[in-house]
Design a protein around this nucleic acid. Sequence first.
DNA 1: CTTTAGCACTCAACGAGATAGAGTGCTAAC
DNA 2: GTTAGCACTCTATCTCGTTGAGTGCTAAAG
Lengths: 341, 341
Amino acid sequence: MLSERQRMILTAIVDDYIRSAEPVGSRSISKRGDVSFSPATIRNEMADLEELGFLEQPHTSAGRIPSHKGYRYYVDHLIAPGGVREEDIRKIRAFFAEKMIHWEDVIGHAATILSHLTNYTSIVLGPEMFSASLKHFQLVPLNDSSAVAIIVTNTGHVEHRTMTIPEGIDVGDLGKIVGLLNDKLVGVPFHRVKSVLYSEIARELGRYMDRCEEILSVLEQSIEEQKDPRVFLSGAANMLAQPEFKDVDKAKLILDTLEETGKLTQLFPAGLGGIQVKIGTENAMEAINQCSLITANYTVDGQSLGTIGILGPTRMEYGKVIGLLEFLSRDIASMLNRRLK
Amino acid sequence: MLSERQRMILTAIVDDYIRSAEPVGSRSISKRGDVSFSPATIRNEMADLEELGFLEQPHTSAGRIPSHKGYRYYVDHLIAPGGVREEDIRKIRAFFAEKMIHWEDVIGHAATILSHLTNYTSIVLGPEMFSASLKHFQLVPLNDSSAVAIIVTNTGHVEHRTMTIPEGIDVGDLGKIVGLLNDKLVGVPFHRVKSVLYSEIARELGRYMDRCEEILSVLEQSIEEQKDPRVFLSGAANMLAQPEFKDVDKAKLILDTLEETGKLTQLFPAGLGGIQVKIGTENAMEAINQCSLITANYTVDGQSLGTIGILGPTRMEYGKVIGLLEFLSRDIASMLNRRLK
DNA sequence: CTTTAGCACTCAACGAGATAGAGTGCTAAC
DNA sequence: GTTAGCACTCTATCTCGTTGAGTGCTAAAG
């Protein structure tokens, strides 16, 4: 579709614009070593590329900037595979060498290091726990009327909440119920817990059933809650360093959006593996239509657990970020894997 | 020290400046109903107030703005007690009506509602757990080599971490050790756990001791970790709405600082009860020398648990914020109290 | 037919005055 | 003690010419 020369010129323009954030003129491209044509020739090609929709002109007498279509073509066809700098690898290793106590630490650290290395904003979704299974369920009474319910998964994740102990149940009954729940539910994957709860267990509990509802519903809710993955955000303030957001109002729009972490999950394409790049208006939320989001899944045993992502301006260092995400997603996976051994 | 009229004028200037963010002139004050003197008279008083250090002039032909000293005097002597608007109370009640599962939810919700109601940034420190006591300790084995250690406090807080099971200890031994730890430690306040661990328990464990170190140190670390209270931040982007931070670089400085939540604790004055107001350079961190921080402790049974705070520009609605913090700190306290019943 | 030099043209960005207006301090009258 | 009047100061804003980067077109060169 595009001639070799056009591809070279488009690459040069996108690269230059990513570096400088300023419209790129024919002369400055001609002066680069890699495209040895006169400015006039390049101007002609640029006019063609603009007609094809790959470039845009802010105003008549300015240089060109890539359009969304231009970025898309750049990402799909022109980008260099992009390795990770030795130095960055060392920083990552060093950062992850700190001892980490929960998986939350691993994911949180990943978000931090990502934003530091890229100077963009990182958004990381915690592991999808829905495919995990129940390892242990327990009630720890705090006093006469309340207790802490604790759920441990086979992945070492712990979920807990405080509940009120139903009237008319003594400690012995409580123990029996908990014992029964453990007998029946340990090893059962979360997505099946609910049905087991209402078929087998409801029958066994029999006359206790009405008074146990509180307990069962606590268990049910805890599991339900795991559906929404936890969101880790880091480097939101990095947005302010981008010249495109030097206008505070634009910046505020984005930062306000980022603060509602709950809504960020909808930005992430579900179920697709590998690296995903969403450019500008391809993103689901209007507030970040001036941004690009690059995401990568981290997987353990071929099963996708969660997603790490980088949000930056459409004028983003795609090559570098993609390389970094590829590297880090593998690293996180192996780190989480080691913890579950 | 100041005449009644000077106090009135200072109040008017601070109030006006808080509303408008623009230097206040003599004429605009004269036009207000509450100070019925001519602009000339007010100008004379303003000159005096400037000489005394309560006001500043950005340049010769501009109005006056309050100095740090002016704000300080305003906060200490001029401010109205400041109730909470009916509407805000209703919003708070509505917001807290949602069911909240962990204390983290309560505190997190408090941070959110605070930033929404004030349009400033809220910083909330989670309950100080160091004075809590141990309620329950447990190990849940995940597989042959690793287990989850779970610690429950008498306040319903749950702390957990994954650990490696030491070689050469079988399940039975593990059970005995955990049993012993529970016998000896349940009810012991955290700040005494360490000494009990190394006096009584070390003796009892005797020959097991060397192989238990892993377990003991996990317990110790978990308790140690509670020293640093968790930090909840909300509405950081609200800073961008303030005219004093329309310059992106200034804004970035502050937001970068806020992102390092760990360091924020040092902003909070330790141990002082009631409402604290830190104006401008009174704050410990240089990055927020243009900001004021208002904090309030929330207490249960007279014991300070944690702190809620609002960070805004020095030109901040002190009266409103102080009222709100007073109200909300009591509300949080009672809410947490009810949960522990 | 492709490439390039040359040239007139366009348009944002920048800086220099000029102007307006808000606010002051001082003086003299009330 | 208070206030009207007035000259003065200083910023913010506007206009307007200038500058310079970059373009598109044409015609010559390869």
